[in-house]
Amino acid sequence: MYPAEPVTETEELAQIEQSALRDVSSASTLDDLAAARVRHTGRRSRLAEILGSIGSLAAVRRGEVGRAANLARRAIESALDARQKALDEEELGARLAEDAADVTLPGDPHPIGALHLVHQIRLEIEDIFLALGYEIADGPEVETGYHNFTALNMPEGHPARSLTDTFFVDGHPDRALRSQTSPVQIRVLERRDPPVYVIAPGAVYRRDDVDATHSPMFHQLEGLAVDRDLTMAHLKGTLLHLVRELIGDHEVRLHPDFFPFTEPSVQVQVRWADRHGTARWLELLGAGMVDPNVLRACDVDPERWQGFAFGAGLDRLAMVRHGVPDLRLLFESDLRFLEQFR
């Protein structure tokens, strides 16, 4: 039905705009919206018709109708664009929601290995001494009787030189697997003149059967400092520094001990509580002032040079610090063990 009275273009544009905005806001899908776009702004829409007819209007009305038509078109297009953006986002949102991941599932794994616990402890101790200015020295594991014993003040006949304590090389009665890292002291002092500040980590061998606390092969870290005026105070300061850096502030005490290659000799004990809170004194390090006989054996004059040496069992330190109950675990290469210390 026709309206009762003819409407002006301006009035019609207002109606078109209202109707278009209604359609736009009610479009719930991108297809609805595309249809609304065609219906209200397409070439065959009433709006396009009016815009196309402006040229044929009377000149006095052209301006007014043209302005109104453009305003309507912009309003409609802006509504269309806004709605388009909203629907786009809605649709993306729906798509993403469908692509939900269970973030509690594990991520793609990377293989992660572990340095051996003994290696880790060794690196830590090395770094502590490197920071003090020490160097790291090394020596052979198949040693001469001279380096492993004689020069360390253990002459022929010393119990450590017996077949029951030390491994010897078949066919070479004077060659043994080093029973301590101390022969590196001798090798270093033979090679160079003091002052010398070195540490020497490595494998050592003693003729013990394998059990929870013994192994025929284990690891030591030797330290040697020889200079003009080193005293037991320097020895004590160095050892306590090491202990604090390695395991933190614990009660520490020294007591006398005996080693053939140091005099005086001491043992460092640390008050250590295990995981159950039971505290006891643990022997961690043997040490002492380098025996004058050792210096003389290396052609170093004990009246001009003096110093200290110390030795720590790396395996034992690792066991104490990490609560490892059985030495054998360190040599079994069991991944379930090794991977606990990544």
Binding site: L132, G133, Y134, E135, Y197, K236
Partner: peptide, 10 residues
């Protein structure tokens, strides 16, 4: 307790 003064490679 003292620490030696060391001039070394470190």
């Amino acid at each position: 307790e003292e620490l030696p003064r060391i001039v070394g490679r470190g």
